[in-house]
């Protein structure tokens, strides 16, 4: 099945999704890699300058360019998600994330958290950075750029029809990666 979502998406919609479905999302997404995960887990939820629960989480360290009109995305494909496995269950719990976009898949801890808190992990084609950048309409904000640097900072992207995203881990306990390894 193919779905086109406006973010944020409620649990009812997430429950409809199964491994193998394709989704496209429109709305706000934020990037976070290792450093941003670590930082956001240490911070007080109420002190954050943005509300992650309204957005999808994108495992991405983009290549950005500063222009007269502000930041512009040059290339922004997904980064390897497995590096975030050690943080993700706590991150989902703390920030109410229900759509994760990444590549390469995640492990059992994330799988359980997706079941418990009703979320999905979706795969975007790794390395397809130019294609992804084309779906970003605007870069409304960036946080912790000075401390973390370009790839690790939290970038907020306003995207339109961002995808195709393959539902690779669903809220019913299924994982495409686990099934292939068997």
């Amino acid at each position: 099945m193919e779905y086109h979502f406006k973010l944020p998406v409620d649990s009812g919609e997430i429950k409809k999704l199964h491994v193998g479905d394709i989704i496209y999302v429109t709305g706000k997404i934020f990037t976070a890699r290792d450093e941003a995960h670590l930082m956001m887990l240490e911070k007080d939820k109420n002190s954050l300058p943005f509300d992650p629960s309204e957005m999808a989480l994108y495992h991405c360290g983009p290549l950005m360019k500063k222009t007269d009109k502000g930041w512009q995305v040059v290339s922004a494909g997904p980064t390897t998600s497995s590096r975030m496995e050690i943080f993700e269950d706590k991150f989902i719990e703390k920030y109410g994330i229900n759509i994760i976009i990444g590549k390469g898949g995640m492990g059992e801890r994330t799988e359980k958290a997706l079941q418990k808190y009703t979320g999905v992990y979706t795969a975007y084609t790794g390395g397809a950075g130019a294609l992804a950048a084309d779906k970003v309409e605007e870069v409304p904000a960036v946080y912790w750029l000075d401390e973390l640097g370009m790839p690790e900072a939290a970038w907020i992207f306003k995207v339109k029809e961002f995808g195709p995203l393959v539902v690779a881990m669903d809220s019913h306990g299924r994982s495409i990666y686990k099934e292939i390894k068997r």
């Binding site: 991405c60 040059v74 494909g77 084609t125 397809a128 950075g129 130019a130 294609l131 084309d134 195709p164």
Partner: peptide, 25 residues
């Protein structure tokens, strides 16, 4: 097939627009 299709589209777009094909340069 959808993955290879995205890769081929991306290669084409990067070449035409002169942008790095992957953000990890």
């Amino acid at each position: 097939k959808t993955q290879i299709e995205a890769i081929l589209k991306n290669i084409d777009l990067a070449k035409k627009s002169g942008r790095p094909m992957c953000q990890d340069t």
